[in-house]
């Protein structure tokens, strides 16, 4: 699903903070580069930019203020890393606060990002389900949800996905000149006894004969799921349950591409200014990151069978 010029934009999101989005963006990016691809990592977490820390860069010499205020082109702001083929665009602003950055400026930023030269552009999003975050997520060709096996993380992920779907549906209705109609249904959803999102969407689609368009949008959404920080074998099942629930309740098809154990080496390596997968490539968790990247590239999923009967990990 790469866009025309063979460039693929991959976004990492999922709602909750600290699930490992930045860690996976950086480390999976490095794995992709090892396959001979040119990879650009973009820190799109303007409020809490920290992607550079995962890449052994203490403070980036350039920051986005140079782009927004000093009109320096983005490609000049890319910081190389010690990993071949991997560059990073820091989301750091220094004095210029990210809060000042309005939506239009962000859109401008992402328009420029899409034009940068790379095989893969990885977007590291911030936490939360704010419209801006979700909209950026939705622009990506491939969308990865990073979750942890805990209730809050799963809750936040569902919320994030639902926000994505609402945004997509609003966009569709807007394109059809029916935004107001949709919002009217939305605000009277209780009187109409539309108890959940799916019913709301199905009802609205039916009213205006847009079932096919909506179905298409949902099919197109199809995100990937990665479960990070698992501590026992059964935690990996969260990938299946989330996938199943997304499918049965929201009607979207997600792919469960892998899991990764909780490993203190990850934090340690960052604290010591190291790059995890580059400096500790033989650790079990490093192998897991490689496996996830491979599954992603080859379009492979974790199967219930392998996870029940084989490939047990020891904690």
């Amino acid at each position: 699903m790469a866009n025309g010029n063979g460039k693929t934009v991959i976004a990492f999101g999922g709602g909750k903070g600290g699930t490992g989005k930045s860690f996976l963006t950086s480390n999976m990016g490095i794995c992709l580069a090892r396959r001979g691809k040119k990879v650009l990592l973009v820190d799109a977490d303007f409020g809490g930019a920290n992607l550079h820390s995962f890449l052994g860069i203490r403070t980036p010499d350039r920051c986005l203020t140079d782009f927004f205020e000093n009109k320096i082109s983005l490609d000049q702001l890319i910081t190389p890393t010690i990993c071949k083929g991997v560059g990073v665009l820091s989301g750091d602003f220094r004095s210029y606060t990210a809060g000042v950055l309005n939506h239009n400026l962000k859109l401008k930023f992402f328009r420029h990002v899409q034009k940068l030269e790379a095989d893969y552009i990885l977007l590291d999003l911030g936490a939360g389900s704010h419209h801006n975050t979700v909209d950026t997520f939705l622009t990506a060709d491939k969308k990865i949800l990073v979750i942890n096996p805990d209730r809050i993380s799963i809750e936040n992920m569902y919320h994030f996905v639902k926000t994505c779907l609402i945004r997509e549906v609003v966009k569709l209705f807007t394109n059809m000149g029916r935004k107001e109609d949709f919002l009217a249904i939305y605000s009277s959803r209780e009187q109409l006894s539309l108890v959940n999102l799916r019913e709301l969407i199905d009802y609205s689609a039916e009213q205006f004969g847009m079932q096919d368009l909506v179905a298409d949008a949902f099919r197109h959404f199809s995100p990937y799921i990665i479960v990070n920080k698992i501590r026992r074998d059964k935690d990996m099942m969260v990938g299946f349950s989330s996938r199943s629930i997304l499918r049965k309740y929201l009607g979207i098809h997600a792919q469960y591409i892998g899991f990764l154990g909780y490993d203190d080496h990850i934090c340690d390596s960052i604290n010591r200014g190291k790059i995890f997968i580059h400096d500790f490539p033989t650790l079990h968790s490093a192998e897991e990151v490689k496996q996830i990247t491979e599954n992603f590239m080859e379009n492979r999923q974790i199967s219930l069978k392998t996870s029940i009967n084989g490939r047990k990990r020891t904690f």
């Binding site: 805990d150 209730r151 799963i154 809750e155 569902y158 108890v195 959940n196 999102l197 799916r198 099942m237 969260v238 299946f240 349950s241 989330s242 199943s244 629930i245 049965k248 309740y249 929201l250 219930l304 029940i308």
Partner: peptide
């Protein structure tokens, strides 16, 4: 697997209670 998942409450299904 699916029968278990949808026959009982668990921490991965509770968050979607409203859809459920």
């Amino acid at each position: 697997y699916l029968k278990d998942l949808y026959s009982q409450d668990s921490y991965d299904t509770v968050p979607v209670q409203e859809e459920f």
